[in-house]
Design a protein around this nucleic acid. Structure first.
Lengths: 218, 218
DNA sequence: ACTTATTTTTAGGACGAACCTAGATATACT
DNA sequence: AGTATATCTAGGTTCGTCCTAAAAATAAGT
């Protein structure tokens, strides 16, 4: 990697780090971009160049957040349904107390829920995630472009992820510790994913790799 | 009603009307609040007083939009499930080509889908609507405050409304006429609400008014 | 190594939404 | 009619976002 790219990474890192520090200290809405620029020792415009929206200074995780469920479905095992894959992956993330499902620490969680701007941006993340999931489901089930079935399924699955994410955030803000939250979430995941089983248990099941059947199920 | 209230209504009406006219002519993002103020012959601040957010100048329907599904469930018939009530009410709205489910005319639909700000605000409407629905479902099923079941059910039901709304908007923008869209939507509603039947057909059924049973179902 | 080309950063400013305040104006009350 | 109350207005501030031209840093070519 060239020197130019290296410096870009460093600059981005510094800006993001200083921004997060200030946001945690004083709250997202009480820190201006100009202050972030001063703290990171760059021009105001440089902050904007790296992070076109102020919200992205705090939520620098769009891509992995959006791609994860779609990827989980794409990589599900033979004989596994989309629902089962997502439930399995979610439980695994709970066990890891993965930040991507909401385990972000009390200060960070507080920063988010106290800022309408960040909450709104997060809603967009959830939306993008649902769209990515819908695209994969449509692909995996060979659905007609204007069949809404994959969109409905994606909406249901993404909604569960969203609700569990919000639950994690709020319990974190309320001061529960991660192990406590993990236990509760495991239960809630069972309830939420379980409630989709009657409608989705047979949806988007990856065919066993031994001899592909003539017609795909559903 | 006093003269003061009358004038307030007129002022609000004038502002909203002039704003909508300008937005349809030139697009939401290309009209400033100052221009709306000039067109409505009021001070800039008066526009802001009536419509704290610019988006609400175009989307002056928050309350009915948010309350409708919750109200439908609250007023469902004896023996009717929340799902059945919402499906029924939706089909009725399709037959009426009700603006509240997306029949807003090509210009208006185009204004919305072309503006990221309006799309984002609409997302918030959907979210508020889901929350209102969740509250009613929790109430109607006597759910524990931290049982997520009503939230999951509300998310699934609200998602169907949201998807069908988006579908209506996009088909309207694409130039399909309302009768054509009505037919398609009726079919899509069958698919979407139908896909929830396995999980929700027995959820939140209003008890028959003849002799209340000892324990409520679910 | 020096020059040229490309990319990135910078400074300075423009624009518009959101908010504030004090004073003017209009309506309601007695 | 006179006082109280609600509403509107004018003028301003702040901040996020975007624009531009010039300066600085790096890469590429000779």
């Amino acid at each position: 990697m060239g020197l130019r790219e290296l410096k870009k990474r460093q600059t981005r890192e510094t800006i993001s780090h200083q921004a997060t520090r200030l946001f945690l200290e004083r709250g997202f809405d009480h820190v201006t971009i100009a202050e972030v620029a001063v703290a990171a020792q760059v021009a105001k415009m440089t902050v904007t160049n790296y992070f076109p929206r102020k919200e992205d200074l705090a939520l620098d995780m769009h891509d992995v957040f959006v791609r994860l469920p779609a990827q989980t479905v794409r990589e599900r095992g033979p004989g596994e349904s989309a629902l089962a894959a997502l439930h399995r992956a979610y439980l695994s993330a709970v066990a890891d107390q993965d930040p991507v499902i909401g385990f972000s620490g009390p200060e960070f969680a507080r920063m988010i829920v106290e800022s309408p701007a960040l909450t709104a941006r997060l809603r967009e993340f959830h939306d993008d995630r649902e769209k990515a999931l819908a695209a994969v489901l449509a692909e995996e089930t060979d659905a007609d472009p204007d069949d809404i079935t994959p969109r409905v399924a994606a909406a249901q699955l993404a909604a569960v992820h969203r609700l569990l994410f919000e639950e994690t955030l709020h319990r974190t803000v309320q001061g529960h510790d991660n192990d406590d939250i993990s236990r509760t979430l495991t239960e809630h995941a069972r309830t939420a994913f379980g409630s989709l089983e009657p409608s989705l248990a047979d949806y988007a099941i990856r065919e066993e790799h031994t001899s592909p059947p003539p017609g795909s199920p559903m």
